[in-house]
Amino acid sequence: MTAAPLHLAGERLMLDPGGCLHWPAQRMLVVSDLHFEKSTSAALRGALLPPFDTRETLAQLAGHIRKYAPRSVLCLGDSFHDSKGAARLQAADHARLQSLAQETRFIWVLGNHDPTPPADLPGDATPEHRQGPLVFRHQAQPGRVHGEISGHFHPKASVAVRGTNITRPCFIADGYRMMLPAIGAYTGGLDVSAPAIATHFPRGGRVFLLGRERLYSFPIGPSRPGAARREPEPMPLLTRG
């Protein structure tokens, strides 16, 4: 898996095709929207989904940690699907997470799904985390920012190529901010053209779709909120067969 470099607020960040971000200068690993225990949360409402999502997501996370051997791991919020999620962890999963968090410093940025720190797990909890020129928060703030890294929206993007549509989770960034994809095993996504995301990138930017071995990068144009009239056909980036 080849990570791709991206500069934000003068810092060199590595985007990993596995959906995590590594900040080499600080040896910090950033992951977003793990949504641990989404399955048991659904089970409470009557849908008995396969209860292996936490295990699966943990395995991904452990893999990233092994690969980068970071000094700290920052979870960008919604690490648990709900505030009681940590209490529902299976014993084995709990032990695994516990040992990961003991070996490396964990920073739990709080999200809307998990507004309180995870009970019984090591690490520091905070509504937002600043380090160097960067600010890490769960949900992007409206207006101008410089060096913001957030999650929350689970960005994904579609590429139409040869008559089919390929949709993947993605990073989305302009020179000012970046959003991370969700890496939870059961997390879906929101298309980057949705106003909730697009509004944060009024000047356009780039998306980086997660591939098996590498990222696939595409530029995106400025958003045109409320555009309803027919614009002249732009130069087609890709033609459909």
Partner: peptide
Amino acid sequence: EAALIAEATHLPEPRQGRLFG
């Protein structure tokens, strides 16, 4: 293939409705 073309042409797509068209 799509990424390659995007790299070569470097043309951003307008974000209206869908990202890529």
